[in-house]
Design a protein around this nucleic acid. Structure first.
Lengths: 339, 339
DNA sequence: TAAAAAAATCTAAACGTTTATTCGGTGTAG
DNA sequence: CTACACCGAATAAACGTTTAGATTTTTTTA
């Protein structure tokens, strides 16, 4: 194994007959270095395709140019799109992203956060596990001084920057739309009740009823998991009520799809007698029949803006935490009647 | 900003009254260090929640414990599942993964590969862009001595470790299945013709015809993109042929879904008069009506094994390149008749 | 019991940057 | 003509590990 001794800033300096510090400054600052010298350095490094050793510079300067991303899943349209957004912004600003997946398991999340080598990170982007009531591990991490931005699934009682879609608003839009289309018995099949966004969406759903002066029945709200099968089962349960609903607002598109399948199976005409609306704008919305009307979640934008915000925190440690709310958009398709 | 001076191995050594080298070895090797001493070190570092500085140790040792992953997309069931597999293996073996996304753009891919800081990576996992005929950038990278494993979309003429699903075999299975079910005019809606896996799937499709002695018509093979809309359009084209096919084998599930939509629209009874089979086992297979019969791609396993193979290369630079072929599995649903 | 071997630990030199400080020139003001 | 400021560049000390090789201590062997 002939490891050719690595070629460094020192060699560049020697070749140019100048000192390493000058090369180092030429490669970054522009400050305090003659434009002419700088040009010579850049030309040579370009020609030799020379790259700084990241470990050495991270060690000396304390900046790694790495951002950690902690998420529950990636096999999921929403999260993978968020990552795309993060990636895009990071790439443009010269940061790399290091990926950590918790599998939505609080134990793994804790272990992971505890073992994260903060020395190799300039900052952290986190979307917490569903059942993450416990947040001490985040707090100790934050106390260590590492900049953190939470996105999508955020802890309630932590003072930190957060980026989320406007769940209340989206749910309000969705519900109001159903009411406008003439549905008067609207159910909501929700997610796990602990998660802040299921609470927010529920709140929007209720507020829309209040504002439109449409009475609301408690038994029309069901909390369960996020899967297609949960949507299916919840809908079955709703249909067997003495007075079943005539519309469903689902917490996400997967559950909405499950709902439509249950309705199709019961020979109820979705998009006419019965309205269904989802949340996300997952690609499955255009494969289910009838195509699903839904609230589009700005996943890419959430990723991009979280990353942008984090980089601000990294560059300026005094930057004040802020919360960014990104609105969703109603996308009309065929699962709600159109007149 | 009170940056509390970072606490290092040196402080541990002082507290224990031993030298730094002993601490360093205790923290890794076990070799040449008294078990008793080792225990003391581990207890203290545990108690203080001490972590080595990754940059310093990478600089000194040359090992970063980071693996780079280069992929075309992540907003896609297949790739995100592959990443899950990579993540899982990397996590278990104590490696971090750094993510690079090319957007399937050869220019971006080239630029990215050229700029990748090899100093921060122990190895690289790559799935190339569709139109990546040019492979010099990979070759220079490999010559630099960085271990590389290609997966899924692999370059043809490069001598390196590769992990792919058995495309030929899957396509052969799919086509044979259609023939067995009595379909005799089977079309293939393929992907971009340059990609090796579209060639392999085509080969399997053709071989199945040959082996079953079923005649095959050239105009039944159409090359185009990967999207749902491509599947839709290709199917329209096939249906307008003087003698249209009575079954379709699609290069992936998205195109199969497009095909079913076109067939539904033309009021052709999919699963009876007409058979459709896909490739991937994307979650959309269970939302389209009728549910899609397909070949499951072992995405997670591909990720896991690629990563495992790469780590072997990292640990043993003399490890010989090998190619791993992972078989797919037929999943019967309703888009092919069952008797 | 002396010599040799093995085990445990230490010393100190890397690793390749960054950056505070120093230094030498050159231009400018008094 | 001296003193001062200023610009560009050099020196050298970090940064926190790893790891040969040296050294000390302990065990084994003859």
């Amino acid at each position: 194994m002939v490891m050719k001794k690595s070629f460094g800033i020192k060699d560049i300096a020697k070749m140019l007959g100048i000192s390493v510090s000058t090369v180092s400054r030429a490669l970054r600052d522009a400050y305090d270095v003659n434009p002419e010298t700088k040009k010579r350095v850049l030309e040579l490094t370009e020609k030799l395709n020379f790259k700084l050793n990241k470990n050495a510079s991270a060690l000396a300067s304390g900046n790694t140019k790495n951002i950690g991303v902690v998420i529950p899943f990636i096999t999921n349209y929403y999260f993978s799109t968020v990552i795309s957004g993060i990636q895009e912004e990071a790439y443009n600003q010269g940061y790399n992203i290091i990926l950590y997946v918790t599998n939505d398991d609080i134990e793994r999340e804790k272990k992971l956060i505890e073992n994260i080598a903060t020395s190799s990170l300039d900052g952290l982007l986190i979307s917490i596990s569903s059942n993450s009531h416990i947040v001490e591990h985040f707090e100790t991490m934050m106390r260590s001084g590492l900049p953190i931005v939470f996105f999508d699934r955020v802890p309630q009682h932590i003072q930190a920057s957060k980026v989320v879609q406007s769940d209340f608003d989206g749910a309000y839009q969705a519900t109001t739309y159903l009411i406008e289309k003439g549905y008067d018995r609207i159910a909501h099949i929700a997610g796990p009740s602990e998660l802040s966004f299921t609470q927010e969406r529920l709140r929007g759903y209720l507020q829309a009823h209040t504002d439109a002066k449409v009475p609301h029945h408690k038994e029309y709200v069901i909390f369960s998991g996020f899967g297609q099968s949960h949507g299916f089962d919840d809908t079955k349960a709703l249909l067997s009520l003495p007075q079943p609903p005539n519309a469903i607002f689902a917490v996400n598109d997967r559950k909405a799809v499950g709902a439509i399948q249950a309705l199709n199976q019961a020979c109820i005409r979705v998009g006419q007698d019965f309205g269904v609306i989802g949340f996300t704008n997952d690609p499955i919305s255009t494969v289910i029949e009838p195509n699903l009307t839904t609230i589009e979640e700005p996943a890419f934008e959430i990723g991009r803006q979280s990353c942008q915000l984090l980089i601000r925190h990294i560059k300026n440690k005094d930057f004040e935490p802020r919360e960014i709310l990104i609105p969703g958009r109603l996308i009309e398709r065929q699962s709600v009647r159109s007149d």
